[in-house]
């Protein structure tokens, strides 16, 4: 997690002349403004370019509503699957020593470096009509590609490492002392996990869930390959945005895009909040003397 330290005041020997500081700050802020802020603002500006009523109409259009539903379903399935995987992977990697650990970590990171389009293609080759399992699937009347299961699978793939990656370093840093102490005190394995491990990783887990969810709801490339773009059947919001945009329905496209932009802003806000809470949990929030005074007052 990135943290923003409240940097200690720097001495005269460790900072640059004022004009350098101002130039650098100005340059950095201009870059961020032009590349991040303006595109973000323009999404809302375009969405509302023709007024609120058209904006709202675009949002409650049946196909848009369906896309929202599908996006939610995909995220609701993919995120919990990755939570279970992430916790299992982090538990075995962080709390135990075994051969091939670093290879396993590399493999878990693999989906980050595979292009989403390539990921989508692999699923088409597995489950598509002419894929490995294509004949068997069509014989049993199971549809994965160009259907919801394919969208879920593609979403799971692209968000695969998010939670494990967040938890592994966290659990490694925490070590296994507390778990061992719980076992010595007579706790069972599950009790140890629920009462000791889970509370200790909850902020890291939540952080991973937030990032995982944002990616799951916003994924475009991989989902685009496996969805088949069937309106009202396999369109998620990002795919719906593309269709509307290509039809020159800019207000509709940007209205749906603004939903995703709000999602992104909520994600950033939650993420910052969690970082803040996690940092507070680590630090000594209430000094001991204050506690003692409180106890004495009771």
């Amino acid at each position: 997690m990135a943290s923003l330290s409240t940097a200690a005041p720097r001495g005269i020997a460790t900072t640059e002349p004022a004009w350098v500081r101002y130039t650098f700050t100005g340059l950095a802020l201009t870059f961020l403004g032009l590349f991040l802020l303006v595109p973000l603002v323009s999404v809302f500006a375009e969405a509302l370019a023709k007024g609120w009523s058209l904006y709202l109409d675009a949002l409650i259009e049946p196909e848009a509503l369906f896309a929202m539903k599908l996006t939610l379903i995909a995220a609701l399935i993919a995120v919990p699957l990755n939570v279970v995987f992430g916790v299992a992977a982090a538990w075995s990697i962080a709390k135990f020593d075994f051969h091939g650990k670093s290879l396993l970590i590399t493999l878990i990171d693999l989906p980050f470096s595979v292009s989403p389009v390539v990921a989508g293609l692999t699923y088409v080759l597995m489950f598509g009509a002419q894929g490995w399992l294509g004949e068997w699937l069509s014989a049993h009347d199971i549809k994965i590609i160009f259907a919801v299961p394919g969208i879920v699978l593609a979403t799971v793939f692209v968000t695969f490492p998010f939670i494990a990656r967040e938890l592994i370093p966290l659990m490694q840093a925490q070590g296994a002392d507390e778990e061992q102490a719980a076992l010595v005190l007579g706790a069972t394995g599950w009790q140890t996990f629920w009462h000791i491990t889970l509370p200790n990783i909850k902020w890291g887990l939540l952080y991973g869930v937030i990032l995982c969810n944002a990616r799951a709801m916003g994924e475009f490339g991989a989902v685009s390959v496996v969805s088949g773009h069937i309106r009202g059947e396999t369109n998620t919001i990002p795919l719906h945005v593309e269709i509307l945009y290509n039809e020159y329905n800019f207000v509709g496209a940007f209205a749906c895009a603004s939903l995703l932009a709000v999602l992104a802003l909520v994600t950033l806000a939650l993420k910052t909040l969690v970082e803040w809470r996690a940092a507070r949990q680590l630090g000594n929030d209430v000094p001991l003397e204050a506690r003692a005074r409180l106890a004495a007052a009771k």
Binding site: A2, L4, L29, L32, L36, L37, V38, P39, L40, S42, V43, E46, L211, A214, R215, M217, G218, E219, F220, G221, I237, P238, L239, V241, E242, Y245, F250, A253, F254, A257, L260, A261, L263, A264, L265, T267, L268, A269, K271, T272
Partner: peptide, 25 residues
């Protein structure tokens, strides 16, 4: 703090949204 949080926007903003927004700009 706000700027620091904003840096992660490209991670959170779906790429399709970035695409149409940049194109329009």
């Amino acid at each position: 703090r706000l700027v620091d949080a904003l840096v992660d926007l490209p991670f959170a903003l779906p790429t399709a949204v970035a695409g149409i927004s940049l194109t329009t700009l």
